[in-house]
Amino acid sequence: MNNIALQISNLGHAYKSDRWLFRDYNTQVKRGEVFALLGPNGCGKTTLLKILLGALKPAAGTVAIDGRMAFVPQLFQVTFDYSVMDMVLMGRARQVGLFSQPSAEDEEAAMAALERFGIAHFAGHPFHELSGGERQLVIFARALVSEADILILDEPTSALDLKNQIVVLDWITRLSHQDGLTVLFTTHHPHHALAVADDALLMLGGTKYAAGAASEVLSEDNLHALYGVDIKLLSFEHSGHSHETLVPVLPYASRARNGSTARESR
């Protein structure tokens, strides 16, 4: 295996001819790094993920993938009420032969993955009844048990409360640092990308994009170009470490707080 887990070359896609969602994208995801994908709604993030997962053929360009992938969808729903153990066991699909059933070793591997995430006590529990954060950890355990090299997550923190957002982001970093997994995730929160990503790709539309180290790409100017709103980069110290975060400026609310707007009476 080389140092590049994923290589995108001159990639483009259009659902209708001459209406390109994105075009001529070139970037690479290094092995073992966390890579963030950002862009406004409708810019083609999910389309790009589908192409990476092989579910959609790109209209132009190529994708070279070195390693096995696991996918964590945005809102994980299943029609049937499988147990947590059943869900994690499904990660062993590549290891279990086409006409075979999972063995005791597969069940042990699934249980070990659940223990790793501290949710082994939920093994026999209905997946549906877990909270959003717990579900996300179950799907992480499934990815771990699948022995995947590349983990692709579609907005992993959407619909999670603040604590669970932090738990999930923390696990993304751990999976990358401790397990050597390459993690690619899409997000609408630039501060999440800045907190955990090594590299990032900003989908600015058409042939425009910005790719590179997250600390450089996630600049105030680039984010203004991406979302059309002002976003400020703040630095602070906490527990002896320096931190950076991104905060959006709310145009009306900030003026209202400073008393420069008059409340309208009905």
Partner: peptide, 9 residues
């Protein structure tokens, strides 16, 4: 689902 099953190999 198709996408999830496909990603599992």
């Amino acid at each position: 689902g198709d996408l999830d099953a496909k990603s599992l190999g």
